[in-house]
Design a protein around this nucleic acid. Structure first.
Length: 88
DNA sequence: GTTGAGCGTT
């Protein structure tokens, strides 16, 4: 399952997110979106986990929680073709 | 700061 992580602090890195989600399950891939034009973080990223149940568990545990001083938004991704469900 | 990018073998 691909998890969307938004409103994260610019200080948050891929390893930071990976460690956070690894507590709830094994993480297959972690990615933070960086603007190609500015080279800065866009403030959101994606985390891919093997088991959906662990992913949802991590979502419920980390969503709307303060990380690095920022209230992060964690939810299952609902766009692109990386989601478990088709896009309308 | 709210739903990507990958640029060459993932």
């Amino acid at each position: 399952m691909t998890i969307y992580v938004g409103n994260i602090a610019y200080t948050m890195t891929i390893e930071d997110l990976k460690q956070l989600f690894l507590v709830y399950g094994n993480v297959t891939d972690v990615k933070i979106i960086v603007d190609k034009q500015t080279g800065k973080s866009k403030g959101y990223g994606f985390v891919e986990m093997e088991r959906d149940e662990e992913a949802e568990n991590a979502i419920r545990a980390l969503n709307d929680t303060q990380v690095n001083g920022r209230n992060v938004k964690v939810n299952n991704a609902h766009r692109k073709n990386t989601s478990a469900a088709p896009q309308e």
